[in-house]
């Protein structure tokens, strides 16, 4: 109880009321598809554990958009995630150390937390030419991934690149880039999206900390709590589709009225993700709300399979 009290006091000092926090935990619990009874337990996960679970984040063939997406999480804020909830042992975008000292830190963390750390991988892995298209500290992404991932408790592929290859793997895939699972021949938990919604990473990690296991996955390795339904089935513009009220030109009266974007090339009917419900940046909006068709960014090979993006399916 004492832990609880100080935690809520701390929240209050940060301008977050206990009620706001519980509301967030309830929403997160629902996003994860758990019953309301789990809400207090979800809250407990955030209440500063004695030893923070270690996390090692690897950057490969990526644009850092997934890391940036995680920085946008607001409940919990990223500083709480880093300082009080997890122990981010290695993350090139935010870590203070560089060069030799950074390499040393990675080796040290892998050794110290062998079998216990969560490994998050951002970016795909070049496999042509011995993996020679991408290196860190003189070693290929492939080599580093082969060394680190077998020692992790779980491997989470964040973003479409790590999950399915993503943009560098688009035709003609010059570097022979592959998703982490395919490149290494292992099973990964996939959180695709370009970028993915950070709430789905937080949900996955909380699920792991809370229940000691990863959430249930679909055939593409995606958690069902987030990727169980199509965009189309959850779309607030669905009634316009049913009523055959379509946008046929950007900037038109129909566009201003928020009609269905199907004829503008929307890939919502083929795309599994929770964007319409979770929305982005603290629920501010999502692409269809901003009047742009879904481009199908959480589906395998979407850069080739879903394009040209502005042609009707």
């Amino acid at each position: 109880m004492e832990k609880d009290i100080s935690f809520y006091e701390r929240l209050k000092e940060k301008g977050v009321s206990r009620r706001d926090f519980m509301r967030y935990c309830t929403a997160l619990t629902a996003t994860m598809g758990l019953s309301v009874a789990y809400t207090p337990k979800v809250a407990e996960v955030f209440a500063a554990p004695a030893q923070r679970p270690p996390l090692i984040w690897l950057h490969f063939g990526e644009c850092t958009g997934c890391s940036e997406a995680l920085l946008r999480t607001q409940y919990p804020y990223i500083d709480e995630l880093v300082l009080e909830i997890l122990s981010v042992e290695y993350h090139e975008t935010i870590m203070a150390a560089a060069g030799h000292q950074a390499e040393e830190q990675l080796h040290h963390a892998v050794k110290q937390y062998e079998g216990k750390f969560i490994c998050v991988v951002e970016g795909s892995i070049a496999t042509k030419y011995n993996g020679g298209y991408g290196k860190v500290g003189g070693r290929s992404f492939l080599e580093i991934a082969k060394e680190v991932t077998p020692k992790a408790a779980a491997v989470i592929a964040i973003g479409t690149c790590a999950a399915f290859g993503g943009i560098p793997a688009a035709a003609p895939n010059p570097g022979g880039y592959k998703g982490v699972g395919e490149a290494l021949g292992i099973k990964t938990l996939n959180l695709p999206g370009c970028p993915p919604n950070p709430i789905n990473l937080v949900g996955t990690v909380v699920n792991y900390l809370l229940l000691g296991k990863l959430p249930d996955l679909d055939a593409n390795g995606r958690p069902l709590f987030a990727y169980g339904k199509t965009i189309h089935d959850q779309c607030p513009r669905r009634s316009h589709f049913e009523n055959e009220e379509f946008v046929e030109a950007f900037g038109s009266e129909e566009a201003a009225l928020g009609y269905c974007l199907y004829k503008m090339g929307c890939r919502g009917p083929e795309t599994y993700n929770n964007c319409p419900v979770a929305k982005f940046n603290d629920g501010t909006s999502w692409p269809v709300e901003a009047g742009h068709p879904c481009i199908g960014c959480s589906q395998p090979n979407f850069w080739d399979r879903m394009s040209p993006f502005y042609e009707e399916m």
Binding site: G65, E68, A69, R72, C194, P195, F250, G251, A255, A256, L257, G258, F280, N281, T284, S285, W286, P287, V288, E289, A290, G291, H292, I295, Y310
Partner: peptide, 19 residues
């Protein structure tokens, strides 16, 4: 619509007329 990678630009203008 989101950040990173906002999605409302198109050749010819922007799509966010309803906003």
């Amino acid at each position: 619509g989101k950040n990173p990678h906002p999605q409302s630009l198109v050749v010819g203008g922007v799509t966010c007329v309803a906003d």
